[in-house]
């Protein structure tokens, strides 16, 4: 299927998805509050270690997945080196353009931030069984099951959406007798027509699904019986909490007291 999840038995696989989400949030918060490239680089390294060692994800897969993001990261690096307002120390020259040291380090911080966010969620997606995630959100976080079902249904209907989309596209190609859309106007028309057809055909189908679900008492009560055991290894919870503690400590020590953070200059003056 189109999803990233691959079954496995690594630490990340065994960890419950609520704790794993917490870990994801902690990583995100960490790099968002920090604008120090060294901190973000450390976080990035830790995330990579987690994914490769604790999640059993292959580095090759990550590199391939993040390819577009590497490009963005390099872009940001160049951009900030050049246009960073606080930049004074020249680092390199490209014709009339001068890159500054301050801009470069700031760009580096942002690049590591983006990479940390990207890789952590790739690891999350690769090691989290969507069905288990839905069940755990319902059981542990007491998310209303009808809401959680929206996510489950999205996954349920994706393969159908794929085949419908292919059919609708083929139909259009045949009816247009191979004339492809050229120009912006034509393309927008095509986009509209394809989307409308896809949506209408999918809605016709889910109308039946809705009736089939209601006929079997969907939404009858506030809760429903679970048919799965919830397994929450303690190590997973501790791992997530440790990350949270680390982030909080960093925020208190360096951001609140120490003056780092997104609103502060990346590298303070002379240090």
């Amino acid at each position: 299927m189109i999803f990233l999840y691959r079954p496995g038995s690594s630490f990340l696989h065994r960890m419950d998805s609520v704790s794993k989400s917490l870990w994801l949030l902690a990583v995100g918060l960490f790099v968002l509050v920090s604008a120090d490239w060294r901190v973000n680089a450390l976080v990035f390294g830790a995330v990579l270690l987690t994914g490769f060692v604790l999640g059993g994800v292959s580095p090759a897969m990550l590199v391939r997945r993040l390819l577009p993001l590497w490009i963005v990261a390099i872009w940001l690096l160049v951009l900030f080196s050049v246009i960073y307002p606080g930049g004074v120390t020249p680092l390199f020259h490209l014709g009339p353009i001068t890159g500054t040291r301050e801009g470069f380090t700031y760009g580096l911080a942002i690049a590591f931030r983006v990479l940390s966010l990207g890789s952590s969620s790739v690891f999350f997606a690769a090691t989290t069984d969507p069905r288990r995630m839905v069940n755990e959100y319902i059981e542990i976080l007491h998310l209303p099951y009808r809401a959680a079902f929206a996510f489950y249904a999205a996954l349920r209907f994706l393969p159908l959406v794929q085949t419908e989309a292919a059919t609708v596209r083929n139909a259009r190609a045949l009816r247009a007798q191979g004339k492809v859309a050229v120009g912006v106007r034509d393309r927008l028309q095509l986009l509209r027509s394809l989307t409308v057809a896809l949506l209408v055909n999918m809605i016709r189908r889910v109308e039946v699904t809705a009736i089939a679900m209601d006929s079997r008492g969907f939404g009858a009560y506030r809760t429903r019986t679970s048919i799965d055991d919830i397994v929450r290894p303690r190590s997973g919870i501790l791992f997530a909490l440790a990350w949270c503690a680390l982030v909080l400590a960093y925020i208190v020590v360096f951001v609140v007291l120490g003056g780092h953070g997104p609103l502060a200059a990346p590298i303070t003056g002379g240090s």
């Binding site: 069905r131 699904t209 089939a212 679900m213 079997r216 008492g217 969907f218 429903r224 019986t225 679970s226």
Partner: peptide
């Protein structure tokens, strides 16, 4: 339509679907 009326991804979820909704014991 067999494709439209199934609400779940897994057979076990589908067969249990109604019973779960009606809070039948596991």
């Amino acid at each position: 339509d067999p494709d439209s009326q199934l609400a779940s991804i897994f057979v076990r979820d589908e067969v249990a679907f109604g019973l779960q909704n009606l809070l039948v014991a596991r």
